[in-house]
Design a protein around this nucleic acid. Structure first.
Lengths: 344, 344
DNA sequence: TTGTACGCGTTATCAA
DNA sequence: TTGATAACGCGTACAA
């Protein structure tokens, strides 16, 4: 009693062996066909027919157990906000063209989830891992590296690891945009800083400070208020900034989330941008183009970052492994809009 | 000459067999330990020690070849815009708590890429597939279903397939928000429709039309302009709407992307919202809370959608398979803001 | 070019 | 509870 029914819910589908039987060839031949090698024409047609008839689908897991290649890239981020979503979109696009896909994990800032994600990726044997660096993961990432899983950091670096890096010029871009504020006559410039555990947070703050120093403006610690990259942090930080006796005439936000929080507080409290206060922000997002007269911002080259990551990825996965780690730093654009104005 | 060096770049890591050897137990025992079954205490300690010493990491692919379970959920979307990104964030969160992760693919509306994605998911043997439905995929998705891969549609349905569905009340929510515009005295209400190949596009348009009919307002085909869900489509559609001889006094956008395009055109052309024209939109996004007096919108229960999907997922993956497909429809909230005003 | 047979790392079965 | 061993589906030497 042979079971040839293909409509029933048989969990196990046809295998390469079934295909070989039906096509009257050896399994090796089918395997070679699947991997695009040259096959005698008559055999090929029979194999294709058999695959069709059986509804055969290759089992990537079984292949990966032999080849140690899963065609999956791990992607680990703290959150899917607009910045990371754009990153994901571009990365998914360029990675797809190499025949791979992204296995995504979102840790929400919880170190335990980060550890969990890293374990998961290791077990799944992802071909490589792209992640926004966070300080606490040093040991576990180092572990992955020793297991020969290439790591590529973006947005935030973790120093000292044998990983590749694709960053943007945080320091320089911040320096430029703050310099622009100074050019407009501002001397009391507040900054909404990100998390100091993140390299980008540190670099953007340093760029701000350096710009002030370069123009002989004293750094007032009260003007640097710590946010948390998020809207609520920017809201609270702006509130603190605006309750100073000597208020700032301009604010630079280290990312777009906090800038939106700032706009939110300013609006609620009847302060107009740029009449009452100038605002500039890192990250250029859709809302900045549309909001009132537009928000002056640092535009990160998200597409280039994604492409560079993919290039490095391909290199790592094709080259005979090893080789020095690469560290790429990309330039940002400053987009001047209506939220920054000259003061007397 | 035994090779015990763990620093070198040996591509192949320690296996369960190595662990068994070092721990002086059988592989079956190690396997049971790894799967959380009860193990004699002394053995467990030895196994843990061996795992530690060898830097052993489980190979999920090898396991899945036996169990037919990969702990990966396919996630297929047209794009990672704000809506889908929020969906991803929530879904990643709830799926993570079941010990799974999302294998994401972004097709950008290209049918070939959709087909490619479906093949990829099939080869990778994802435990299930969550996708925003698109019309052209009927056959290929049907194929996956016959291969016993559970499918869950969200946002847009594809009729006739044996899949689960988690949707929102597109018709009713559109009906309500358009009724609100009518309550405010509007009778010439334009609509920026989405793609008619998407079920949500159709339903939102039908809700709009039904609302007009219910109040005895004639439907003017010229007032329904087709967008493409995107900003540029909304921009163009608004332009057409506003060049009618008998202009609308209110516009309802079938999604947020087109609404932003509309705002963009209105702003460029000096039309003020809501003084010159009222605007309401499907989807509630961050910018709608902040933009001028706020944009009246339909808020989809994104978190609930994600949770419902995960519930169904867990059910499908634990229950003895089979069982009728579920179709859940969730309610939306109407958020009234300053972009809609009463006219005389 | 094709066929055979073994190995990959894990789970599942079954007897002890 | 444990140990021994047969699958699982595929890739790949090796011999033909």
């Amino acid at each position: 009693m042979q079971q040839t029914d293909q409509t029933a819910g048989r969990r196990r589908g046809a295998t390469i062996i079934d295909v070989a039987k039906v096509a009257n060839v050896a399994v090796g031949t089918v395997s070679r066909y699947l991997n695009g090698q040259t096959i005698r024409r008559s055999n090929r047609e029979q194999i294709e027919q058999a695959i069709q008839d059986l509804g055969y689908r290759r089992n990537a897991a079984a292949a990966s157990i032999r080849t140690d290649l899963t065609h999956m890239i791990g992607f680990l981020v703290p959150t899917f906000d607009e910045f990371h979503a754009r990153m994901l979109e571009h990365l998914a696009h360029s990675v797809r063209q190499t025949g791979r896909a992204l296995l995504t994990y979102c840790h929400g800032g919880d170190p335990r989830v980060v550890a969990e994600a890293l374990d998961f990726f290791a077990a799944q044997r992802v071909d490589a891992l792209v992640m926004d660096g966070t300080a606490e993961v040093y040991d576990r990432v180092d572990d992955l590296i020793h297991h020969d899983i290439p790591i590529i950091f973006y947005n935030n670096d973790v120093r000292g690891l044998a990983a590749d890096r694709v960053m943007v010029e945080n320091h320089r871009a911040s320096h430029r945009i703050v310099s622009h504020l100074i050019d407009l006559g501002h001397t009391r410039i507040g900054i909404l800083t990100g998390d100091p555990r993140n390299s980008s947070g540190i670099e953007r703050l340093e760029g701000y400070e350096q710009a002030l120093r370069d123009r002989g403006i004293a750094i007032d610690p009260a003007l640097a208020v710590r946010g948390n990259w998020r809207m609520d942090g920017g809201y609270q930080a702006t509130k603190r900034l605006m309750s100073l006796e000597d208020q700032p005439t301009a604010i630079f936000s280290a990312n777009y989330g906090m800038a939106i929080g700032a706009l939110s507080w300013l609006k609620e409290n009847g302060r107009h941008v740029p009449e009452d206060i100038s605002l500039a922000s890192f990250d250029d997002v859709a809302i900045f183009r549309l909001y009132e007269a537009g928000i002056t911002a640092v535009a990160q080259p998200v597409a280039s970052v994604a492409e560079t990551i993919t290039d490095i990825l391909v290199e790592r996965l094709t080259e005979p492994s090893g080789g020095a780690t690469r560290s790429v730093v990309l330039e940002c654009d400053i987009i001047l809009r209506g939220s920054t104005r000259r003061i007397t």
